[in-house]
Amino acid sequence: MSNDYGLWSLVVINSAVFIFFAFSFIKPKSKMDWRSLGAFSAFIIALFTEMYGFPLTIYFLSGWLSEIYPQIDFYAHENGHLLHTLLGFEGDPHFDPLHLASNALIVIGFFILASAWNVLFQAQKQHRLAKDGWYARCRHPQYLAFVLIMFGFLLQWPTIPTLVMFPILVFIYVRLAKYEEGIALAEFGGEYEVYKETTPRFLPQIGRVVS
């Protein structure tokens, strides 16, 4: 196997950096916070394990890939961007449309995560319903952010484990969102009912002004 893999120090460092970023933005306190962070962390660890540690997906598909692309060494790290090859892109995979879109989604996701947490933190300190900023556009911007980040990573480095995990994690976030809505309804009553009727759960209302 190419020396481009087996870099377990990079697996640990990259996983720790992204998990720490997420942790610093959401500052988990409740069980729900820890569950959402834990689900995201599992995805990140699985991703970087294949990106720098052991390319399980490439190993599993090696027979099929070698038949279709006999001239390509998929164990070279640059060729691990499978969508780059499968969709017929040429040149440096870090500058193809998918990778650029991936970077944009990841940056936007972390921006939403940071902005939403600041609004939620202020609302919790004042014991009021969070409905400003990104919470004025959708009811669960933090989960929207996690989905954007994970989907962004899938665009640049899809693997079998992360492709399997992604819909499962989206389902988990939907369940957590519904559970949180029940708690908010019990705490804020009619105010939350109005907020729920006028604000979508996940898909943001772009026309609304974010304060």
Rank of each mutant, 00 (worst) to 15 (best):
L120H: 14
L120T: 08
F121L: 14
Q122M: 10
Q122P: 05
Q122G: 13
A123S: 15
A123Q: 07
A123T: 11
A123L: 05
A123F: 11
A123E: 06
Q124W: 12
K125F: 09
K125R: 14
K125N: 13
K125A: 13
Q126C: 08
Q126P: 03
H127F: 15
R128S: 11
R128K: 10
R128C: 09
R128M: 05
R128H: 08
L129S: 12
A130Q: 03
A130M: 01
A130T: 08
A130G: 08
A130Y: 13
K131E: 09
K131H: 13
K131N: 11
K131P: 00
K131I: 02
D132E: 15
D132H: 13
G133S: 07
G133E: 03
G133H: 10
G133F: 12
W134C: 03
Y135F: 15
Y135L: 05
Y135T: 03
Y135G: 11
A136L: 10
A136E: 01
A136Q: 01
R137T: 06
R137H: 08
R137Y: 09
R137E: 00
R137M: 05
C138L: 01
C138M: 07
C138T: 06
C138D: 05
R139G: 03
R139P: 02
R139I: 01
H140P: 04
H140F: 12
H140L: 03
P141W: 13
P141G: 06
P141N: 07
Q142T: 12
Q142I: 14
Q142A: 15
Y143F: 15
Y143S: 06
L144K: 09
L144T: 14
L144W: 11
L144F: 15
A145E: 07
A145Q: 03
A145N: 13
F146R: 07
F146L: 07
F146N: 04
V147K: 09
V147H: 08
L148F: 12
L148K: 07
L148H: 10
L148D: 05
L148S: 12
L148Y: 09
I149N: 03
I149L: 02
I149G: 09
I149E: 04
I149K: 08
I149V: 13
M150Q: 10
M150P: 04
F151T: 05
F151S: 06
F151I: 06
F151D: 00
F151W: 10
G152K: 02
F153T: 02
F153I: 00
L154P: 02
L154D: 00
L155I: 01
L155T: 01
L155S: 00
Q156Y: 02
Q156T: 07
